[in-house]
């Protein structure tokens, strides 16, 4: 008989009642999306590990205080905390990533393509690594909208409010992120294995 799967909301409630194992399950369930979103934004593994930990310190403190009121939206809530910590990190270091004036900034022109062995490219790990690099190399504002919309499940209106731009600008950034990703994938001839 299949065991019933607890929802995020049920796990949050049990954790708030003192069941520490529920936090382990929540982390296992969402760690990849949360960590990847942070890593894509900061482009540095060590910094991403620190911000990932800080994100969960905030999550834990909020849950323990009983201040969590995002019923049914645990992952988007955590990702919003992570995103805010990334922005804090850049502000603290006074190294906010360059925001390009033109929305149609082309990543292709800034990429240094290398001649890689075609057979190596077929290896799953290598492919994953390359795709990760593609996302990491997008301009910050394009990565940001992809992560907030796709990973954090924020609407374009919410993204526009959170990033201080119009909805059309947020949509334009998503559009050019998709165009840039397609160009890179085609240029690098990436064939991903499902």
């Amino acid at each position: 008989m299949q065991k019933p799967v607890l929802t995020d909301q049920q796990l949050v409630e049990l954790y708030q009642q003192g069941n520490e194992n529920c936090l382990t399950i929540l982390i296992e369930r969402h760690q990849k999306r949360i960590f990847s979103a942070i890593l894509f934004l900061v482009n540095d593994r060590e910094t991403a590990e620190d911000i990932f930990q800080d994100t969960f310190v905030k999550v834990i403190n909020t849950l323990k205080r009983g201040a969590y009121n995002e019923e049914g939206k645990f992952l988007p809530w955590v990702l919003r905390i992570g995103h805010n910590l990334v922005i804090d990190h850049f502000r603290r270091n006074q190294r906010m990533p360059l925001v390009h004036d033109k929305e149609d900034y082309s990543i292709i022109e800034s990429l240094k393509l290398t001649d890689e062995n075609a057979q190596d490219k077929m290896m799953r790990e290598q492919i994953y690594k390359e795709v990760r690099l593609l996302v990491e190399e997008l301009p910050f504002e394009q990565k940001e909208v992809v992560i907030l919309r796709h990973f954090a499940d924020m609407s374009f209106k919410e993204i526009a409010d959170a990033t201080g731009v119009s909805i059309n600008t947020a949509l334009g950034r998503m559009r050019y992120a998709l165009i840039n990703l397609r160009k890179i994938i085609e240029t690098k001839k990436l064939v991903l294995v499902s």
Partner: peptide, 27 residues
Amino acid sequence: TMEKIEQALVSPSQESINKILAYSKAV
């Protein structure tokens, strides 16, 4: 394109997860 982004997901280190769980138990 969005499917490819999904394929690029990576995990944090086990050390990070252990630190988070230890913090939770401590508080």
